[in-house]
């Protein structure tokens, strides 16, 4: 009656992707806060933000049905 397999997949993917995006963004913020400021650290921080943004863009891709075959 209830599709436990699908539920477990949904649970794992939800928790995993939320944790991944938040961790990336938090790493970016933490790297920006390193003192004294160094170029390498800041660059790494922006890489973190960029990857998190890519994750968000993937979300937008999933939201808009015309972008992907149903």
């Amino acid at each position: 009656m209830i599709d436990w397999g699908a539920f477990i997949v949904v649970a794992v993917v939800s928790i995993g992707s939320a944790a991944a995006i938040v961790a990336l963004f938090a790493c970016g913020l933490r790297l920006l806060a390193v003192e004294p400021r160094r170029g390498a650290m800041s660059a790494l921080a922006y890489v973190c933000f960029a990857v998190a943004a890519l994750g968000a863009l993937y979300g937008v891709y999933l939201i808009i049905p015309s972008l992907h075959p149903a």
């Binding site: 599709d3 699908a6 539920f7 997949v9 949904v10 993917v13 939800s14 928790i15 992707s17 939320a18 995006i21 938040v22 979300g59 999933l62 939201i63």
Partner: peptide, 17 residues
């Protein structure tokens, strides 16, 4: 972030929440 991730996962992996 958790809300967005859960809503998207549930609507695309076949377990509507």
């Amino acid at each position: 972030a958790a809300t967005a991730a859960t809503v998207l996962a549930s609507s695309h992996l076949g377990f509507a929440l």
